[in-house]
Design a protein around this nucleic acid. Structure first.
Lengths: 214, 214
DNA sequence: GTCTATAGAGTGATAGAC
DNA sequence: GTCTATCACTCTATAGAC
């Protein structure tokens, strides 16, 4: 991968995050990156080619955080760490979560790829929940349908979080997302699971207090 | 309100729903409505003026379904009807729910108006939940924070529902939305409330069976 | 109220010199 | 690999005749 190609991709991500995917033209990108438009289209002939490269990068990075269903075995602590890592990645590819529908409308190829990706992500979440059911953290009387529902709900909340924040015009932070997600899991936890989560969130508060005193 | 003005607004809503707000130019609208561009801009000098008129219409219609917090006293049956009416309105102003962020990014005036509207809607939902707590349909040990959380979650689910559907490339229907919302309310229902909801959803199934036999 | 015509800026994408 | 120059198109918005 050439150095310039890399620079263009990272620059594009930054600009897309700032102004929104549709509001960054190839022209504007070239200006901001100190490149000629001709050079830009030498590396990425069409805007779609650039988007595709960025999309592949995105998918590579997210599969590192939330792996395929059969490999996803997170206990509650690991799951909380997955949320944190996901939030970070979401900030990095923010435009993607904000403008996803517009991107899908423009590029059919990405739409098709992403449909499959979403199903895979929800399957992974479901597998993780089932794993915790086996560990005794989640209630056993919850049937398959309930866990599937919960997985879809968690995906929904996490993925549309940044858009919701902006649509409402309020401030974003990781704590609120984590709270929203754990709140949804709450009713499905066993008492064992509940204690683990309480400990998890209490440790968090202690850490925060320590930071405050610094 | 002039007849042409009305025709333009309804035509614009239809086109926005079909192709997305950003993908319908004033030019294209004029063509599709059989009007000259000049005539269009006579009635609505800027695209923003048209959007503002549509937004005001939208707000008028939605307040008829979900009134202000102090007037919102829905028992569980009424609440279910509110969901149905909301879904219908959401289909009518579909583009608004799909492209809200893009509209807010383009028109600061609408953004400001809508921030307030959202808070009002969530307040109404919360008031409705509290009312049902008083009726004994919702658990009494749920504190204020929990009900607020639930109200935000319900708003979130309902508002981003159409976008989620499209982003995943799956088919939409009212039943799935209702199921998702009742699923979230489920853990907070008293046994009295649970029975009412069961009855509500069972009656629904009977109705559907009747329709099937027709 | 409705029309034609057009300004002026921005869009993605290409050609060809160096 | 990088540049300048430019095409063909679309966008919002305006001017002025009828």
């Amino acid at each position: 991968m050439s150095k310039t190609k890399d620079r263009i991709m990272e620059g594009a991500i930054a600009l897309f995050n700032l102004y929104g995917f549709s509001n960054v033209s190839m022209q504007r990108m070239a200006d901001d990156l100190g490149l000629s438009p001709g050079n830009l289209t030498y590396h990425f002939p069409r805007k779609e080619d650039l988007m595709l490269s960025i999309y592949n990068l995105f998918q590579k990075e997210i599969l590192f955080i939330i792996p395929n269903p059969e490999e996803n075995k997170p206990d509650l602590v690991v799951f909380d760490n997955q949320i944190r890592a996901f939030y970070k990645l979401q900030q990095r590819f923010l435009f993607f979560y904000l403008d996803l529908l517009e991107i899908e409308r423009s590029y059919e190829v990405i739409a098709q790829k992403h449909y499959a990706h979403i199903n895979n992500q929800i399957d992974s979440l479901e597998a993780g929940l089932k794993y915790n059911q086996g560990l005794g953290n989640l209630k056993n009387n919850d049937d398959m349908k309930t866990l599937r529902f919960l997985a879809e709900q968690l995906w929904f909340t996490a993925v549309f979080w940044p858009r919701q924040i902006r649509v409402r015009g309020i401030d974003d932070n990781l704590t609120n997302l984590r709270e929203a997600l754990w709140q949804q899991i709450g009713p499905h936890l066993t008492s064992k699971g509940k204690n683990k989560v309480k400990l998890l969130l209490k440790m968090e508060q202690l850490d925060l207090q320590k930071l405050d005193h610094k």
